[in-house]
Each structure stands twice: as C-alpha cells, then as structure tokens.
Write a protein that binds this DNA or RNA. Sequence first.
RNA 1: GUGGGAUUAGCUCAGUUGGUUAGAGCACUGGUUUGUGGUGCCGGGGGUCACGGGUUCGAGCCCCGCAUCCCACCCCA
Length: 407
Amino acid sequence: MIQSLRGMNDILEENYERFDYFISTATRIAKNYGFHYIETPLLEETALFKRSVGESSDIVGKEMYQFTDKGNNDVCLRPEGTAGVVRAFVQNKLDKKGGIHRFYYHGSMFRYERPQKGRLRQFHQFGVESFGVESVHEDASMIMMVADILGALGIGYRLKLNSLGNQNCMPAYREKLIGFIESCGDALCEDCQRRKITNPIRVLDCKNDNCQTLYVNAPKLINHLCDECQNDFESLKSILDTNNIAYEIDTHLVRGLDYYSKTAFEFVSDAIGSQSAIAGGGRYDRLIEFLDGKPTPAVGFALGIERLLELIVMPETVRVGYYFGAMEDESLPLIIQTAQVIRKGNKAVVEYSAKKLQNHLKGADRVNARYCAVIGENERNSNTIWIKDLVLQKESIMALDILLKGE
RNA sequence: GUGGGAUUAGCUCAGUUGGUUAGAGCACUGGUUUGUGGUGCCGGGGGUCACGGGUUCGAGCCCCGCAUCCCACCCCA
C-alpha cells in the first residue's frame, strides 16, 4: 500500500467538517474586520524566505523543502505565509500606491521537521496581514480578531504579550545582552553558547534550569525600550484592558522569525500537548523594505489550523435535505427523477436498493436527512410520494407531479 | 537531527510462561412475521496480528531491521 508521506495527512470526514467550520468562521470574522482574501503560490524563490524569515532561524536553516527545479531555479515550498504576501504586496506595487491594504489567507505550509502531535510537515495556517497602518490600534485589532475567532469556536487560550523594540532600541539592547551572556562564560549550556552567535535573544527562552537561574539577572528588553516602543506597548495594553482581553507579559517571548519588531504575541493552549502555540503574530515594520518595497508599517498573525481542530466546539448538527427510498425496484426510477428535481435547490441522497419502510427510516436517520421520502406500491398507484419530517415527526402524502414540476 | 515508547478488525483495546480455528465493545450490514427512524432484541460480514528477516517442532508473544505514530530534546502554527 502506498502511504502518504511522513507528516502529511489527509483531511476528511469529521476532521474536514471541523476544518471547513474553522475556515468559514475565521473568514467571516476577518471580513468583518475589513480584510480581503489573497492567494499566493505555494512555491517561491528560496531567496524570499532567506531574506524575510531570516537565515538564522531554524525554519530557513534546516526545515525548508528546498530544491532546484527543471529551469535550474532555487525554489522551496513556503514554510510560512507572511513572506509570500509581502512579496505579492511589493510585486503588485501596493507599497507605491499607498493607503491601507488588509489581507487574509489560508493554505498549506511546509516544514521538514520530525512530526509529532500538533507538528506536521504539511500543515495549514489561517493568517492575516495588514499593510500601511502604523497605529498600535491595528496591533490590538489583530489580537482582538484572534480572540474573536477562538471565542467563536469555543476555544480556551492564554495570550502572551511582549515588545521586541525597534531599530532604535533593539540593537543597543542586543549588545547589552551579549555582554551579559559573555559575562556568564562557560556556565551556560551548549545551546546558549550557540545562540549567543546566531540569535542572542533566544537564550532567554532556554529550558535549561541552570541557564534560567543565571538569566534572572539578565537585562530585559522590556526595560530598555525607547520612548516610542514603550508608549506603543503601554497603549496596546490599555486597549486590550478596555476591551477585556486578558494577557500575560512574557519577556521571553521572542518568536522564531527574524522579521518581527515591537509587538509580539502568541496564543497558547494548555490542552493540546507540548506543541501549544495555536496562533502567533506581531508587527514587522521593516520587512517590506527588506524585500525591496517602500518602507511600510505592517502587522499580522497566523493560526495553526491542525492544532485548533480538536479544540473546536462544533455546533449541533441539524438535519437537512431529503433521503429518497424505494420499497420495490419498480419505484426506483420515480424517486431518482424526484431527487433530481429536489437537488436544484436542496440536498437529496438516494438509496438505490429497495427495502422496507423501517429500513429507509433508519437510512434517512443515519445520513441526517430532515425528510424521508419513500415511494411504494400504494404511492405508485396513486402517483404520490410519502414524506416524513423526521424532526417534527409528521408525515404527509404529496402528489408527484407537483414535486416534479419543481414547486 | 538525537533519545525513548507504541503498532492486533473501520475505531478503542484484550490476548496468560511461546502451543489447536486470534477475541470484546463500538461502527457497518441484515432480520425483528401485513408500510414507521433515532435508543430494544437476534444474526452476519470483516484481521497476511504494520512490513521484512531470524530463533524455534511451533511466534501476535522472543531477537534484528524498517515504516509510521506518540513522548522528550530542538523549534514553531
């Protein structure tokens, strides 16, 4: 038997019901916030991700599905959504056009990682990106949108919040932190020694207890923000407070992608195992110019759909449409004909084998039909069809020609 | 990429120190005496015990390999 590739799953039946319900819920909410759909290619030039996500990140460093195509282009399957949307934004000259552009998207992302629960090689994200709004109100809107989506789906969460500073305060802090790391010398774990070079901010995230003991005295970025970043961060907290969005400040929240600045946030769930991040996002004011666009403020987030799936509280299923059954083979052509008419405006499933009424009712029940419509000898003789409303438990007999006329 | 655990019916799992024809619940399917469902009762189908080797008179069970999933590391959605 040929199996799907490792970490690449089919989505069907119950899972697809949930998937579909998630997409429609998130789409509705994103539209309510004034966002428009954007579709970008799954395959992009590798350079796009190297320049945006950053070569120091694990995503680009070791997790990309990268290959050379037949035209000798260095390409890869997108590992995340933001880079492609920004590329599209610049390529379509929306940066020069000016104004505000708000997009939402959903689709497959690919990362070559070792799979486990909540971590797949092909997974699905729902994300939004907002271009042209400098105000921290947009950051708050992003967070409120995620909260709305999760709320609508009945998903509990914790919100972690941090500020990463901007080009004025981050570099100075970074130097200060490197100085601190060096002062710790060999006491730090191997990973932290490595992070000192690749991405010093990440050491704060280290899970090694010994390192964490030392980091208690480490300088915190949140205490080194410039006035602008500090003010924005205060505003953000105050907006969230007035809108009843609970959050916790997490000074170790740094996000794995290089392009973030100022606001960084992450929604986590305690109910899905170790891969607990269900949504993450933040501001990335510099990314557009990194990708050769005109400097444009931007902020966005992405939700990991698979991680949410089992948390979604589905609405009660309602009975819809018709089930058609024949009690003898001679009645079958009639029910097929009738079903075809019904299908112009409603759902109709047809059972092809003739069986007794009791079994048709069971069948209609099983497919969650609202109406069970059956033709037997009596109906055939009188040119009628027997229909039972399975919710109201009321039955009726209708003249066939009325139904067939499509009324 | 590193370390550990698991894998038996569509699903969730039993299966004794290695010993005849591998079980249960749920699901599916049919019946339940003249045309009335969900939830009663009775029956039925369905397994190369993940896959490939090995040990043994004999392997679902022991050994080796491999695939996938799960857990931890790492990282992230």
